[in-house]
Amino acid sequence: MSADNIQTLAGTTIEVLESYAFLLGGPSDAKKGPPPFADPSWLVILAFSGSRAGGVGMVVSPAMARQVAANLAGTEPTQVSDEQARDAAKELLNIVCGKYLHQVGPREALFDFAAPACFVVAREKAVQYAGGKPQATLEVEDHPLLVFIEN
């Protein structure tokens, strides 16, 4: 995975958030930094194998996941359960991963996808997990979102 790939992953994430969840996002302000992550945050991971093995992940605030779920269901975030919000976060990463691999993989590539996993972890541990991996921090309508590549 080249360093350019993280830019592709970040761009894909922004595009999917807009088209799928109707949320606007972009790179976080380099000077100001992103809004703080919630504590605990959710660490969402999706592994793939096949033409290339690896994974993608994200650290997301529960409030943002709730907003994604609410937008998908056409309801209010307060009416969304934790289970629905976690499901929405996993499906979001699923879509991002599929589009990302389509852009960076060879045309004839074939991948098998594991089921995405969503862990509730302390903010520091979530950010630490992504530490040292190619990563990008985004700001999505006042919510922080960190995306990263494994392997």
Binding site: Y20, N94, I95, C97, G98, K99, L101, H102, G105, R107, E108, A109, L110, F111, F113
Partner: peptide, 22 residues
């Protein structure tokens, strides 16, 4: 979510009539 051309070809060969990506 799988947009690969090989997967689409596989599924078409298996008998699906359409393939939409999420």
């Amino acid at each position: 979510t799988d947009c690969s051309e090989r997967r689409m070809a596989e599924m078409t060969a298996a008998g699906v009539q359409g393939y939409l990506t999420k």
